[in-house]
Design a protein around this nucleic acid. Structure first.
Length: 820
RNA sequence: GCCCGGGUGGCGGAAUGGCAGACGCGGAGGACUCAAAAUCCUUUGCUCGAGAGGGCGUGCGGGUUCGAGUCCCGCCCCGGGCACCA
């Protein structure tokens, strides 16, 4: 398509200028009001795809807009440069992940520059930079010292495709790996964990203080999964001095406990299993330990399969409410890792217990009166029955009374449980930050001394997917001496989850030059918390939860004194780009590369498309029509450019009321666009500008012409409004119109003049019985009585009136509704 | 199953309880042109009507209101999250 200007030349010119002049570099002592605008730390996957383009278009818009609003905007860029794709690609190509990564970083950097997105490149951070790794490891060791990092053996998620363990957060609901899609296996391994559960309560409570999408906040609340209840003891029938501790949120249903269940991993299982039951219990436990979570949960929907999944241990415990003995079962529907790993089972009021009881022929005793005709378990509210001292009470009251009873008679205590588990950070892969500890036969786990950081992986490591950490096979790396006793020791061979890198990079951005600290808290406090964070919804739990934990922990261990405990004040999650219904991504291979558009519509045209196509939070369907919409956006820029050259315009000298009215429309648009910028309604902001261009063009091209100075004023205002959206072309047009003056990006954001925004007269709609019958010109200040009188007097309305109206509703100056 | 979103023209989407469909794409017609492209102009929810004009329309069914796309109740469908968490 022939453009009225040379897209490529013009974009190159301005991109070079922004870079050379360091236009968007800011110093920490900048006197202006501060604003920290941040797009999520990207994994360097090569040239940008449409998802990146969308992300950086929004980010750049915020940066340029806030700059025009007079703020010092911190706009850093960097790379989440450790990770599996680089390692896998290096294995395939027989090269080193660093080479692969550097090439991809250069490509992505080039892509964002071609988009015209501006950054303070001096502050660039990337995860595999030894300068960054040093502090990543120092933080790990501080966590270790504070007891927030610990080593433990636990059943963990092992992904055969990735040849490493995963965090709970990286496993999908169906038991597959979030990254590779392979079925995740359970293995018992000794691994490093971060004690994120120490922060469960605070992570949950602080969600309320965040200006985040409700959806994301809900997802985090669900993930943390707080539940209040009572932990108490069911005494063993054979030895009442001891008992089985259980957790319940429904102590009020205690009279309905007809059996108890312990998890296959429970330490008491051995003791509680009688000889007659040993064979059946052992086979159940073995099967449970081998089955994946998917297989374990596959049969959960119906009662089918429950029989196989539970067995009687042969022992009994005493229900403290009734004094009766009830059997203890082992079943894998009870998790060893939640609560106490054992439950009281109330089949009448719990669906899972009900299904199990049906299969195993266990009694069902209702303790809450279910609604008429209710079949199966009833977990709702209702008066208590068959419940001794609880009879007649409603659920809330009964819970209270039952909890008090258990505290007194069953070593009970009110407790809170969380679904959230500690964060498993060990990874059996090469391309990550090594965990900086050594193992000594004498001193045990020993931290690598600070002076020796960073611990760097040697380059000549054999990487494969055997499942063993590649570093473990490198004797030169593995064998070391103990920092404490000087004796022989072995280095930890695992690397850290790459989510640790993205959990504090924003802090380093604030103070990237400091040589002797991860970041100076005083410098970081000048920018933190992030004013606007922008990224994909896919990070709703993982990254956003981890980063919140990191900052809280960093403050508590003294590395970030004075910082607020939440990193991201406002979050915006953009929609995904879909092609044929599925998410556009490199791994799916369904990308529409942005490059082709740079040559035709240019970066500005592509940016405008992403702003215009729909609400930023919504997904974008890339269809056959999309190309046309992109063209339409470019066409708008062309038309604006031609108008700024007075193409086909006519002029007159005396300023008329029509000229005034156009200027008023311009100011109304200033107000609309500003509002759109503030509430992330970019699509309507662009629409308002398109509408204004239509108005102004039509006016300036009338045979009777336009007032020249008014047109110039309109053009200048429009260029400023469009500057954050189409930065190259607006810079060019501004320079043409104002040679020798500062760039449009250095001007301030226009303010609408309230006197011009206000209207002298407005159209009032007159309805008869809710149907529009007339439109009247009235003053905006018209009173209710005046409006009603004018409406009734109008001849169009009279036609529909037959005598006195029954009622007149006047909403001046918008509308009058006459009920006939 | 539970918890969030969301259902508006041929399409993407607009609408502080007050003219439904802004803006754009696509379509139709026209101007310019030998012709085409580009550009510009007009038109474009459905429907009845020659016309003036009328009727119907925001997933479905109710309700509140002078007035509902918007609020309330009950459903249906789509997208996402969680899912033996006791």
């Amino acid at each position: 398509m022939a453009r009225p200007f040379d897209v490529s030349a013009l974009e190159k010119k301005w991109q070079a200028r922004w870079l050379d002049e360091g236009t968007y570099e800011v110093d920490n002592d900048d006197p202006r009001e501060r604003y920290f605008a941040l797009c999520m730390y990207p994994y360097p996957s090569g040239t940008a795809h449409q998802g990146h383009i969308r992300n950086y278009t929004f980010g750049d818009l915020v940066v340029r807009y806030q700059t025009m609003r007079g703020k010092a905007v911190l706009t850093p860029f960097g790379f989440d440069s450790f990770g599996l794709p680089a390692e896998n690609a290096a294995i395939k190509a027989g090269s080193h992940p660093r080479l692969f990564t550097h090439a991809r970083m250069a490509e992505l950097k080039n892509s964002v520059r071609r988009l015209g997105a501006v950054y303070d490149w001096r502050r660039e951070v990337f995860s595999h930079d030894p300068n960054y790794m040093k502090w990543a490891q120092a933080i790990f060791l501080e966590f270790f010292k504070a007891g927030l990092a610990y080593r433990a053996e636990a059943p963990v998620n092992w992904c055969p495709g990735c040849a490493t363990v995963l965090a709970n957060e990286q496993v999908n609901a169906d038991g597959t790996c979030d990254r590779s899609g392979d079925l995740v296996e359970r293995r018992n391994l000794e691994q490093w964990f971060f004690k994120i559960t120490d922060y469960a309560e605070e992570l949950l409570n602080d969600i309320d203080t965040l200006e985040w999408p409700e959806r994301v906040k809900t997802m985090q609340r669900n993930w943390i999964g707080r539940s209040e209840g009572v932990e108490f003891e069911l005494p063993f029938a054979h030895d009442p001095s001891r008992g089985l501790r259980v957790f319940t949120t429904r102590p009020d249903t205690g009279f309905g406990v007809t059996y108890a269940v312990i998890a296959p991993e429970h330490p008491f299982l051995e003791e509680l299993t009688t000889n007659e039951q040993r064979a059946v219990v052992t086979s159940l436990v073995e099967r449970a330990s081998q089955e994946s979570d998917l297989e374990r949960t596959a049969s959960s929907d119906s009662g089918a399969g429950l029989e196989k999944r539970g067995a009687f241990t042969g022992s009994f415990v005493v229900n403290p409410f009734t004094g009766e003995s009830v059997p203890v079962y082992v079943a894998d529907y009870v998790l060893g890792t939640y609560g106490t790993g054992a439950i009281m089972a109330v089949p009448a009021e719990d669906e899972r217990d009900y299904a199990f009881a049906q299969v195993h022929g266990l009694p069902v005793v209702r303790t809450v009166e279910a609604p008429e005709g209710h079949v199966g378990a009833y977990a709702g509210d209702g008066p208590h029955i068959n419940s001794g001292f609880l009879d007649g009470m409603a659920t809330a009251e009964a819970k209270e009374a039952a909890a008090a009873f258990l505290e007194e008679h069953a070593r009970g205590a009110r407790t809170v449980n969380y679904r959230l588990r500690d964060w498993l950070v060990s990874r059996q892969r090469f391309w990550g930050c090594p965990i900086p500890v050594v193992y000594c036969n004498v001193d045990g786990i020993v931290a690598v001394p600070f002076e020796q950081l960073p611990v760097l992986a040697p380059d000549d490591v054999v990487m494969d997917k055997s499942g063993q950490s590649p570093l473990a096979t490198h004797e030169g790396f593995r064998n070391t001496t103990c920092p404490t006793c000087g004796g022989p020791a072995r280095r930890e061979a695992d690397t850290m989850d790459t989510f640790t890198d993205s959990s504090w990079y924003f802090l380093r951005y604030c103070d990237p030059f400091t040589p002797d600290k991860a970041f100076d808290p005083v410098e970081a406090a000048k920018w933190m918390p992030v004013d606007q964070y922008i990224g994909g919804i896919e990070h709703a739990i993982l990254h956003l939860l981890y980063a919140r934990f990191y900052l809280k922990a960093l403050v508590d261990i003294g590395m970030a004194p004075g910082l607020t405990r939440e990193p991201f004040k406002r979050l915006f999650t953009q929609g995904m780009i879909r092609l044929d219904g599925s998410k556009m991504s490199k791994s799916k291979g369904n990308l529409i590369a942005p490059e082709k558009y740079y040559d035709t519509v240019g970066a500005d045209g592509l940016r405008l498309f992403h702003l215009f196509v729909g609400p930023p939070a919504d997904d974008v369907d890339w269809t056959a029509q999309t190309e046309d919409v992109i063209e339409g956006c470019a066409r708008f820029l062309d038309r604006f450019y031609r108008l700024s050259h007075y193409d086909e315009c006519f002029f007159h000298d005396e300023r008329t009321s029509e000229d005034d009215e156009v200027l008023r429309e311009v100011h109304r648009t200033v107000a609309k666009v500003t509002e759109g910028m503030e509430r992330w309604s970019y699509n309507t902001a662009v629409a308002a500008l398109m509408e204004l261009l239509n108005t102004v063009s039509k006016w300036a091209r009338r045979p009777e012409g336009a007032h020249r100075a008014t047109l110039d004023e309109a053009l200048d205002l429009m260029i400023r409004l469009l500057a954050p959206m189409a930065p190259h072309l607006m810079a060019e047009m501004w320079e043409e119109r104002h040679p020798g003056e500062p760039s449009v990006h250095a001007t301030s954001w226009p303010e609408a003049d309230p006197a011009l925004v206000a209207r002298e007269s407005v159209v009032m709609v007159v309805q008869v019985n809710g149907k529009v019958r007339a439109r009247l010109e009235v003053s905006p200040e018209v009173s209710e009585a005046e409006a009603a009188a004018a409406a009734l007097a109008s001849p169009e309305v009279q036609r529909f009136l037959d005598g006195e109206p029954r009622r007149v509703v006047a909403v001046p100056p918008r509308l009058v509704n006459i009920i006939a």
